[in-house]
């Protein structure tokens, strides 16, 4: 397999990892704030902080990892996206910075400050929205190149239904994934009240998720015929995605096997996300960057792959340790440790 294929697969896998782990985090922030407003906070805050506190920094790493890897394997992306995304990119970083630090301030410093909680909750919805815009940009038509100047066509971006549907999809799927995970975590903690609440949230957010996903898909067809056709050729992946969704919904509705339900939702997003990614092949930024044209030199590609494998040998056992200590240790989850 060539370096560009390895590179893009690895990066896509990491982006998927970020999607899941960050969704849990971002959604949790919103639920924590919403629960405070509706005076249900003692129910779920305990749950959230117990899971999130040990892993908040790891979430951040997934993101850093993705974009450093992107620059490494495909240095041209730094030029195009870097030039065009100065303002929206900066806004996203500022939001991420506020969120990360205020989470730590709240959790390790002064507890229960409503301002911190608001910043934490609000940024939880704004960040996925601002980050997902990049996906719309990659479809082409929004980033313009004249001579040597690369710029972003804000008007086209803000008037396009595709970009809004992608933003909408990002927000609702964050809430859906997060609610489902927290419902699972609540069963581990045997916290029935929290479970009831999170199950309601998960069921509630499932409908908009599937509706907006279909809407976005239709708008994609209008915006980028090639991408749409490629995804139609991968119809079986999309069908699998919907099948996993149905299984998850059924399990949630019956109110059992929450772990399996969450796994199904992970698989649902995995199938859809990879169908989307494979369909975009060979472009990273339509029509300027393809993965073949922008791939780094073979010596660097080799070095990156070696480092990646070495790093994974270190990280996977460590991550398993984290899961064992904080996710599958029943006593810890219940708050006894």
């Amino acid at each position: 397999m060539s370096y560009h294929l390895i590179g893009i697969s690895v990066l896509w896998l990491f982006l998927y990892g970020y999607l899941i782990i960050a969704s849990i985090d971002f959604g949790a922030g919103f639920f924590a704030f919403y629960a405070r407003l509706t005076k249900q906070d003692p129910l779920i805050n305990r749950l959230i902080s117990r899971y999130l506190s040990p892993v908040w920094e790891i979430t951040n790493v997934f993101f850093v990892f993705f974009y450093i890897g992107m620059i490494g394997f495909f240095p041209d992306t730094a030029y195009y996206y870097g030039s065009a995304l100065l303002v929206p990119g900066s806004v996203a970083i500022v939001l991420l910075a506020i969120r990360g630090s205020f989470y730590a301030f709240e959790n390790y410093g002064s507890k229960n400050n409503i301002v911190y909680l608001f910043l934490y909750g609000a940024s939880g919805l704004l960040i996925p929205a601002s980050l997902s815009v990049t996906l719309a940009l990659s479809e082409g038509g929004f980033i313009l190149k004249q001579d040597q100047t690369v710029s972003l066509d804000y008007w086209a971006l803000f008037t396009n239904p595709l970009s809004w549907s992608i933003v909408g999809l990002a927000i609702v799927s964050v809430l859906f994934i997060s609610a489902c995970f927290l419902a699972f975590y609540a069963t581990r903690a045997e916290d029935h009240a929290a479970l009831k609440l999170m199950r309601t949230y998960a069921l509630f957010w499932s409908t908009p998720t599937i509706i907006i996903a279909l809407t976005a898909f239709i708008y994609l067809g209008q915006h980028n015929e090639r991408h749409y056709q490629n995804m139609m050729d991968l119809w079986w992946l999309l069908a699998l995605s919907i099948a996993f969704f149905m299984i998850a919904m059924w399990l949630l509705y019956r109110g059992r096997r929450y772990g399996l339900a969450f796994v199904c939702i992970m698989l649902q997003f995995f199938c859809a996300f990879f169908a989307y990614g494979i369909g975009q092949y060979p472009y990273i930024l339509d029509p300027y960057i393809t993965i073949q044209s922008s791939v780094t030199s073979s010596s660097m590609g080799f070095a990156l792959v070696v480092v990646f494998i070495g790093g994974m040998c270190l990280l996977i056992p460590s991550l398993i340790l984290v899961f064992k200590l904080f996710l599958f240790d029943a006593d810890y989850v219940k708050g006894k440790k």
Partner: peptide, 15 residues
């Protein structure tokens, strides 16, 4: 990009 990539691994490990 290689040292940058390595740095994210170190950061990951620490995190």
């Amino acid at each position: 990009s290689l040292p940058l990539f390595l740095e994210t691994f170190a950061f990951f490990f620490e995190a």
